[in-house]
């Protein structure tokens, strides 16, 4: 199968500090890829290179090559365009302080969609896609800040799907949620992977084991192991992976 992302020889520096060392990985499409590893191992940093969010950090410098469907994302694709193709959901739910409707319509509007009917359709489809429609359909014009944390996170997912991306990056999307909201988001991911490629950073190894097809283990800015989730968790090839998943450190 052709990979969605193929990353080769990726190095990332924050000033003089090297956060990522020689990363080589091929992320398959329409699967859930989990990135695990202890805090500060570079998994979030790696995730944010995939839609160039690290560009926002002035000191970040990148070498190497990242291709999305064979196109180099740092040279062949415009960064705004890239981010519409590679959506992102953040650790803390971060809806805009506007109405639920405006939150979802924000992305399409920025791309110049003005037609009211089409926006209505996008909003409804996205909210349905994020399993939020039934909960909020009667209060689309109310502020998104009034939703619960779990609802806010699903709203952020809906906002990401509104752009009809090919990939959704999730940076510890459930770490700020309670178990029930987490379960809902996980179920949602199961649904989403039929249509989208999902890359998720998670602190919870159970979560990685539950939802992902592939797992990548990062340590100190290096990619230690990358394989089918089953294999990583039952038969890790690297001693350090084993130590980590058996809870010997991290």
């Amino acid at each position: 199968m052709k990979p969605k992302f193929s990353v080769s020889d990726l190095n990332l520096f924050y000033g003089n500090f090297q956060a990522l060392h020689q990363i080589n990985i091929e992320i398959p499409s329409n699967q859930v890829t989990a990135l695990i590893g202890p805090s500060g191992c570079g998994k979030s940093t790696f995730l944010r290179t995939l839609n160039r969010m690290n560009d926002l950090v002035d000191t970040a410098k990148i070498t190497g090559n990242i291709q999305l469907d064979g196109e180099n994302i740092y040279s062949d694709i415009d960064v705004m365009k890239l981010r519409t193709r590679v959506g992102m959901v953040f650790q803390k739910p971060n809806p805009f302080p506007m109405s639920i409707y405006d939150n979802i319509a924000y992305g399409p509007r920025c791309q110049g969609v003005k037609d009211k009917q089409r926006l209505n359709q996008i909003v409804e489809d996205s909210l349905r896609g994020a399993a939020l429609w039934d909960e909020v359909k009667d209060r689309l014009n109310k502020s998104a800040m009034g939703l619960s944390g779990g609802q806010q996170q699903r709203l952020c997912i809906a906002r990401a799907i509104a752009m009809e991306p090919e990939v959704i990056l999730m940076d510890e999307p459930t770490s700020a949620l309670d178990p029930i909201a987490t379960k809902k988001v996980e179920e949602l991911m199961e649904q989403l992977k039929k249509k989208y490629t999902i890359v998720i950073v998670t602190h919870s190894m159970q979560q990685a084991a539950r939802i992902s097809d592939k797992t990548a283990f990062f340590l100190m800015g290096e990619l230690i192991e990358f394989d089918d989730t089953n294999k990583v968790f039952t038969n890790p090839q690297d001693k350090r992976t084993e130590d980590y998943i058996t809870g010997r450190f991290g």
Binding site: M53, C110, R159
Partner: peptide, 26 residues
Amino acid sequence: PMSYREASYGLGANKIQTLSKVVLPS
């Protein structure tokens, strides 16, 4: 919050859009 800006950029908005639609209103 920086998260507003990140969310906006993450949705493919450019700097001016982020500024005028999210940052300034807040």
